[in-house]
Design a binder for these strands. Structure first.
Lengths: 206, 206, 206, 206
DNA sequence: AATGAATGAGTTTTCATTCAT
DNA sequence: CATGAATGAAAACTCATTCAT
């Protein structure tokens, strides 16, 4: 083991612990909301002492914030992946919906982020973690591009279209969450697709 | 004041206390999820002692259950009101959506019920309080009737139609809840109506 | 037991508990400084549950603040008692020194206040509990009056005189505290008296 | 660089670390009492790892003891410096007061020692670190010599004189500590001098 | 019925100390 | 020697629930 390894090893351990804790936090926060989640459950789930949890994350709010941050990152990754393919904006929007659905269904940490949003203490709600705000921005942008490239009908107000799109998607998320911990979300989204396409391409003033 | 009056007075007082507590519980549970809500907050919100809360409702679960029960009642009332008018099933479904939206927007106790659904401890989740299960049943029934009376297109699977309808509606509820404590829900539902009508009456295999 | 008694009884119990806790806090804080004192020790010393301590005093700082407040009151009482007798200002000052010494020697809660002053967390230091500031004000006032009524020599600057007086008195307090938990303070003050008198009545520019 | 140099270098490094830690400990203990001071604060203040702190000083008590020891040394140094000049004992006593005041005002580690005295856990209080005991011995010795060489009045009991002297000096220290972290101590002592001289040279039976 | 007080079993948080590298 | 990470025991604090009146 050379010096580089040694050095990396030292810091590595801490990073591994942090990752394990974050993962465990994801699993716990995906099952219980903020107040209902126990830090002890997280530390035990991670197989790491409670004291260590506090060494890496200063308190309960901080670890919840870390979960939200990673959720953001992972969703942004999916977004970035979708954006690189050069299809129509409508397709991109639908692919995005699929991609996020897939992510949610497979990633407890992302599920945790969803759960946390509605149960955070006031202080955290402000602090920059406004996933829906950002998300709405993305959908509106894609729809605007869709209108420009003709893949989306221009006869309905952009805001209203985005609102509809988001309501449908969020509704699917919520019901999938209740029904089977989001396992059914990808299928739900697939079944949703025709309705969404119809709504976004309608030519009569719906 | 005779004994009857006294007795009625006494019972009356108890009922008033119960109502005040229930109301306060609605307000508190509409802002915080189950674990985050404090019984002390409820008692203070009601201006009634904590001991009294325990006299009327045995424990935290019981008072949450009471909130859910009343929510059910109030939603059922709306449902009953809609059912008496003799229009088409599609109209009834849309009116129901409007009616429930109106109810949610105006009644913190009903809002509380919505919040509670996703944060209840396991024990309560089972105990008969499955509002969405019941709700889904109602929408499916109405859709079936709609297909029978021709107001709803028969070309899509009933379950899928109901799923879509509920996703849209729930999505609107959730986003309205986040945005402004449900105040915008009636407007959102109004904007949703054309999309729902289109989806339910579509003749091509969407 | 009449209704008044009942009513008083109810509130009485709480007040008794508070008093017991405050007393116990006095005893504990007089032996250990702020960070070293354990709330559990206080609750056990009082024979009252820790939960109850938190019911009456919201947190550690609050109970320390309560101790300081009562200390202030008791010292002010002594002050008021001294002020009513109509002797010379010098006598009043010396009597005050005796009275406070007596109080400190006999009252653990006042001793606690003295201990706390130098070990409080920053937040509490500000919040109005500036016993020494007030005390210095009193001594300066008495000295000014003494100069006016001729019982104190006017040849030394008032501030300097007050400074000297306070240094001597505080020094006696500190050493008595270290030596025997303030038991020797009254005697120390008695032995101090001639020096103080000499200093305050000196006619040559000392 | 030969082996000797390396060795010396290594030892050198350790000594530097120790000194940095001790200095940091002085700064921390001068602001917070024993229980309130955090070893982590000390290590951060020194810019040296916590592990290293434990390597050089076995535990919290040991580092506090080290601070006290150095405080003793520095005060003894001042004492020794004063003793070599051949003036009267009274002058020596007054010079000692000035010298110590100067030392306290300028040396956080000595300030730390002062703070620690009143907040030490029982175990440490015994273990030889009784600065005041020693200090009192010195003052009594000087006063006795003063009586012998005539620079101090012999009409008052020696113990009482020493007691007075120490009370005044300690009082000045405490108030300077509270007022401005001991910066004003030298000035205070200067203003104290005439009173002390008067007390120690008084010929009438004060 | 109603109330304020009391309790105990948790939960979060802190920190001296130890460990692995 | 030095470091960052880890730990456990104890501390502060919370809150559903019960009790005495």
């Amino acid at each position: 083991m050379n010096r580089t390894m040694e050095k990396r090893g030292k810091q590595q351990r801490g990073l591994e612990t942090q990752a394990a804790l974050l993962d465990a936090a994801g699993r716990v926060f995906s099952q219980k909301e903020y107040d209902g989640a126990r830090l002890k459950d997280i530390s035990e789930e991670a197989g790491i002492s409670l004291g260590s949890l506090y060494f890496h994350y200063g308190n309960k709010e901080d670890i919840a914030a870390a979960v939200l941050e990673v959720q953001q990152e992972r969703m942004t990754e999916v977004l970035a992946g979708i954006m690189t393919n050069s299809e129509s904006s409508l397709t991109r929007l639908l692919d995005l919906m699929d991609g996020i659905a897939e992510l949610i269904a497979s990633d407890p940490l992302v599920q945790a982020g969803i759960r946390l949003v509605s149960s955070l203490p006031e202080e955290l709600k402000d602090s920059g973690h406004a996933p829906y705000g950002e998300w709405v921005g993305v959908t509106e942008t894609l729809l605007k591009e869709g209108i420009e490239d003709g893949s989306v009908s221009s006869q309905i107000d952009l805001k209203v279209l985005a609102e509809y799109f988001n309501e449908v998607f969020i509704g699917a998320q919520v019901l999938a969450g209740i029904q089977d911990n989001w396992a059914s979300l990808p299928d739900r989204v697939r079944r949703l697709r025709p309705h969404v396409v119809a709504a976004l391409t309608r030519t009569d003033p719906a």
